[in-house]
Design a protein around this nucleic acid. Sequence first.
DNA 1: CTGATAGATCAATGATTATTGAACTAATTG
DNA 2: CAATTAGTTCAATAATCATTGATCTATCAG
Lengths: 136, 136
Amino acid sequence: MQLTLSTNKLSETTEDAAVIEQLARQLKVLGEPNRLRIVQLLREGVQCNCELVDALDMAPNLISHHLRILREAGLVEVERDAVDARWMYYSLNRAALEQLTSLFSQFFDPARIKERHPACGPQGSVTRSKEIQLLL
Amino acid sequence: MQLTLSTNKLSETTEDAAVIEQLARQLKVLGEPNRLRIVQLLREGVQCNCELVDALDMAPNLISHHLRILREAGLVEVERDAVDARWMYYSLNRAALEQLTSLFSQFFDPARIKERHPACGPQGSVTRSKEIQLLL
DNA sequence: CTGATAGATCAATGATTATTGAACTAATTG
DNA sequence: CAATTAGTTCAATAATCATTGATCTATCAG
């Protein structure tokens, strides 16, 4: 799915609710250890289901399941072998990863974290920053 | 948690099983929409629980829960107000985000995806790449 | 046509985890 | 001290989702 931003100002790029949703969806998909391992293997090049089964020691249908999730998230693509159509070849979607890494770097860029003092708390807030003590 | 790599060769940095596990753990934490929204708010600066409650329209204990998860993943830190110790101030852990974005960019870098032909499949594999047809 | 092969789909189970409401702490205020 | 306030912790519920086993679909080989 290709998302268009509701604004073209870079500073608001990562504020768009739909973008956040999409980012969360993809991160959740990648946050599953077995799927992350599949992605790691796919980085080494196109793989068929059976190769992943061998490498990960998992049931074929489970691999199938995770590949489907990855595919539905737009992160992985499938091709069918033209010579023997029983074989499926899975590969990473470069464009999707390009977009994802770009958004991720922006969203979590430490340099863009603001120093703002909280709007709530006691009036002592003004000088709080120097008095604060670490918890536990 | 600070992870040391079992190898110092850049090309193998993202191959380390422990690193993958840790990456998966953090991505899963960030893959929850409400938590991602919390992170988004924390990017605007330190926030107390109550501010997040207002901004996200969620129960305080639920915010507490998600903040704990973020904290246990090392992504968020807490401080207690020195003037009125009832207030807690949450902030993003810059060092952790630095490390995470770096690892993420490396791991999902499209440029590092190899073109390798699958080791399985029919003998026709050799010329497969040009014959392959897209599935659905 | 009959197996065998690669893999997907389906239904059921189990584990994880977000959410909710109630009770609890600790600190401040009157 | 009693009442508030900010926030956490705990137990219970509900929803999500990974895993498993069985079945199903194509496709290819004999």
